[in-house]
Design a binder for these strands. Sequence first.
DNA 1: CCGTGATTTGCACAGAGTGCAAAGTTGCAC
DNA 2: GTGCAACTTTGCACTCTGTGCAAATCACGG
Lengths: 204, 204
Amino acid sequence: MSETAAPSRRELNKTANRDAIAAAALELLRSRGMGEFTVDDIAATAGVSRRTFFNYFSSAEAAIASFTQKYLDSVIEQLLRRPSDEPLLESAQHALTAVGSPRDLALLAETYALTQNHPQLSRYQLQAWDECSTSIIAAATNRLGKVDDELYLHALVGSIIASGRAAMEVWFQQRGPDTSETSLAILRQLLFDAVGHLRSGFNP
Amino acid sequence: MSETAAPSRRELNKTANRDAIAAAALELLRSRGMGEFTVDDIAATAGVSRRTFFNYFSSAEAAIASFTQKYLDSVIEQLLRRPSDEPLLESAQHALTAVGSPRDLALLAETYALTQNHPQLSRYQLQAWDECSTSIIAAATNRLGKVDDELYLHALVGSIIASGRAAMEVWFQQRGPDTSETSLAILRQLLFDAVGHLRSGFNP
DNA sequence: CCGTGATTTGCACAGAGTGCAAAGTTGCAC
DNA sequence: GTGCAACTTTGCACTCTGTGCAAATCACGG
């Protein structure tokens, strides 16, 4: 069915460049910490010009947040694979915890941990989660046709995303920057349980 | 009981300055639109130096987002006034729609409307809502003592805030930049209904 | 091999944000 | 009211950000 299609040389170079830049940003984040490096540093590490950096990302924070976006994109992908008659909350519960890409979850967790106390980066992460909401709403609207109750859908999807973020926050409080396999398993469980609470209407 | 206490001259000057700067930012936002003015413009309009602007706000966006923060602060204030044995969802429903400060809600709506398509400002607004979550969680933890289920509390409060944001979004889709009394009444109703959906566990 | 369109790069420039020290205010004790 | 201590505003200098523009470079099809 849907092949990934044309990996032309140009396309390949483009994603390779993008990945190299994001990887360079992550490397500097790990080694120096947020705020301790500049866009020039990232560009130099990635082996591109400063100007090219800005062709791909609008800021250093955006480059780091791309890892969060990547995880959330894979969540949406999983979500679209669920049977379309399955209740949204159930689909979401599975999509958030699906291990379609273990590395994505690990990077989500790592960048989340390295983000603490860096307002501007936090804002970019928030935006990534919010855009995920928007995508899910669009997909649901697409699938169900014009919904009768916009408010219901927005509040529901927003709550799902909020539950996901709650799981991240609680995980980090409990585990700190530990991103071992064990720790990530706990994170997955928290993601599952958070949406579980939502599914049960927050009735204990 | 808790008086607002010492309005010393210094304190007064400080809040007056802060208000003047925020008002100047809003005025420029209204007259020129986001991205069409600089921090120097705001400082000049407010009658302070550029450097003083940065003593109060870290960016133009932060100055605009202060109106959202103000509304959310008043929500928290209302929330703390509710009887402490009332279920959190019920308290939240009332706090979000309480007209403790009609002007705050109007400014929330207006700045929300003027924010569309301005990523950096959107991020600041998101952050304001997120910090509100954090405050509510802290308050609840404070009131109930160390909670047994952190995840439950985080997911619940996050969902409340998400419902509030959902109401804002739906309101704006329906009403655009209309901030008349009638329109604001609709917004209040949407806020009430959004949390209502959450209260009923999203069961139609 | 060459032309065409996309991509990268260098350069220039306006503006953001911050440290620092001088100048100006406010509060308080005498 | 004088004067000193603490706080606030301001100007200045400096680094870094983000973007427009045009030249150079690259990918691809003929």
